[in-house]
Amino acid sequence: MFSALLAMGAIAITLGAVLGFAAIRFRVEGNPLVDKIDAVLPQTQCGQCGYPGCKPYATAIAEGAADINLCPPGGEEGIHKLADLLGTEFKPFGGSTLPKPKSVALIDESTCIGCTLCIQACPVDAIVGAAKQMHTVIASECTGCELCVPPCPVDCISMVPIAETTGNWKWKYPVYAMTPSP
């Protein structure tokens, strides 16, 4: 009886020591997976996924709370990268987030009253202008996140799709639906 207690005690103490050492040796600061997912996301901080920015969305993916197909700026390419990183299947865009044609914001300069509300909303500082002066969008900086559209009091911002030219055309991903024939 006593020797049994002694034997189990010895096992418990040894295992406890090994695990305690391992907990210190292999300590993980934060969640390294979040940083890896965050690096794949496009960093537009647009919030179209339903999360306040790219980092919160990355955290939600890492926790399994969010799907990988919610990021329109990342496009299908972004979903492919996320699926590769996480070892899951590719999923087409679903629900309310559909891939829109890549577009930039355009300010109708004759209507703009210079309220600066869109400047405050822009996550990438792509709008220039000052109070009571006309604003304009730097097209090359604009990520097409549409965050400037709702704050405008005179609705002078419209999203203009970028025309496909020989300069920006890319090969499309081949998509084959794998549904068994009935």
Binding site: A22, F26, V28, L33, K36, L85, L86
Partner: peptide, 12 residues
């Protein structure tokens, strides 16, 4: 512990 440290993707 080792896998969480060395390969977070596999851990996930």
């Amino acid at each position: 512990m080792v896998i969480q440290k060395t390969s977070p993707e596999l851990y996930q």
